[in-house]
């Protein structure tokens, strides 16, 4: 499994949220599949050099949202793929990404149509790989 959590200090995003964001992202993109195991709270705390309570906080949030499940004596596993983000949260995350992409593209002098085409092409490729929108299978 290639998935590895990386955190940075000094960020605007608290460490527990960096962890939940990365797990959600990995589930959405398929890098983490149902049944994959995550490190224990203690192991991840020592790997990332972070207070175990911070990891426990992140895991509790993920468990509350039904993304992971802790099986006694066996470890922490990815469970069913539910809707990972609420619709509001999803929109809030999408907007800055589009802003950045469009802004950069304008600066690079792409036309309206070129940009539309490039976007369509990407979406087409995504469809081939994943067989459609991952959130609405």
């Amino acid at each position: 499994m290639s998935f590895r959590i990386v955190i940075s200090t000094g960020s605007r995003v608290p460490i527990y949220k960096q962890i939940t964001d990365q797990v959600r992202q990995a589930v959405v993109t398929g890098r983490l599949a149902v049944g994959d195991q995550l490190p224990s709270v203690r192991a991840l705390a020592e790997d990332l050099v972070v207070n175990p309570n911070t990891i426990a906080h992140a895991y509790a949030d993920l468990a509350r949202d039904g993304l992971i499940e802790s099986r006694a004596g066996r470890g922490v596993f990815i469970t069913r793929k539910r809707k990972v983000f609420t619709p509001e949260e999803a929109w809030r995350r999408l907007e800055p990404l589009i802003d950045a992409a469009v802004g950069e593209a304008m600066a690079l002098n792409f036309t309206h149509q070129e940009l539309k085409d490039a976007f369509e092409k990407k979406l087409g490729r995504w469809k081939q790989v994943k067989g459609g929108d991952p959130n609405h299978e």
Partner: peptide, 10 residues
């Protein structure tokens, strides 16, 4: 060292 504090302190 606030980076350390962020890592270890609760």
């Amino acid at each position: 060292q606030l980076a350390d504090v962020e890592r270890v302190a609760d």
